[in-house]
């Protein structure tokens, strides 16, 4: 039975070319084949060290991802606060517009009653009734017990329990790699829950922006109507002063 070329190379102690990962089987035979034990220039110790280093690198990268996700979550939380404030401002602006309309109605009555005995009576033109803001807080309609009820029903997201790490110092390389894997699992679990929350936040942001867009339409209409009526009142005032 002829020994393949790469086996000969390996037995001579020269590693196969372009092979960065000592665990890679891409150039070797399929795992099903029985391969004679081959000596490499890398000792088991070196391979174990390599495995541990790689595991630590992976842990570090996963932690970086968690860190980034957390930073995004913080920013998103601030954005939510800003959106809430913006929603309130829209409501307030609309309320002020409604208040201005009441004052304008009084002014129109006064302007109508002014003028000489023979002057033509003046009635202000109106396109539509100013309604003012739609009752607020329709965007905060989550019930406090919702999560609790979902939990009782058995559909709440699984609560992330933090494993109580009994700090036994790993001895063998395998244990060290396993410890790193546990850390990675914890970090990925964190990442998963943070991303889930980010998705929820994105949905809530979308809903709120949609609500604000809808609230801006009647506000815009009411401001246009106010503008129209104010121009009419100014015209009446000018006419009276011109007499």
């Amino acid at each position: 039975m002829s020994v393949p070329m790469y086996n000969k190379q390996n037995s001579l102690g020269t590693p196969p070319p372009h092979k960065t990962n000592p665990f890679s089987d891409s150039e070797g035979p399929s795992r099903a084949q029985s391969v004679p034990v081959r000596r490499t220039n890398q000792s088991v110790q070196e391979l174990e060290d390599y495995a541990i280093t790689k595991a630590r690198e992976t842990t570090h990268k996963v932690n970086d991802c968690v860190r980034a996700a957390e930073a995004i979550r913080e920013d998103a939380t601030q954005t939510m606060l800003t959106l809430h404030r913006q929603g309130e401002q829209i409501m307030r602006s609309h309320q002020v517009a409604a208040d201005i309309e009441q004052d304008l109605t009084v002014s129109e009555k006064l302007l109508g009653s002014l003028g000489g005995l023979f002057s033509k009576s003046w009635r202000p033109k109106r396109n539509h009734q100013i309604k003012g803001p739609v009752s607020g807080n329709n965007y905060s309609a989550t019930t406090a017990n919702d999560t609790e009820q979902r939990g009782k029903l058995g559909i709440a997201p699984a609560r992330q329990e933090y494993p109580s790490h009994v700090q036994t110092t790993p001895v063998s390389a395998m244990e060290k790699v396993q410890a790193e894997r546990t850390k990675q699992d914890d970090a990925l679990s964190d990442l998963c829950s943070t991303l889930g929350q980010l998705k929820e936040m994105a949905v809530d942001m979308g809903t709120e922006i949609d609500r604000q867009n809808k609230a801006l339409v009647p506000l815009s209409d009411d401001v246009d109507e106010l503008n129209f009526r104010l121009k009419g009142a100014n015209q009446r005032g000018r006419r009276l002063l011109g007499k």
């Binding site: 998103a76 939510m80 606060l81 809430h84 905060s140 989550t142 709120e208």
Partner: peptide
């Protein structure tokens, strides 16, 4: 804050 969709995350 807990009852508000926008504030509950804080």
């Amino acid at each position: 804050s807990i009852n508000n969709n926008l504030l509950k995350y804080g």
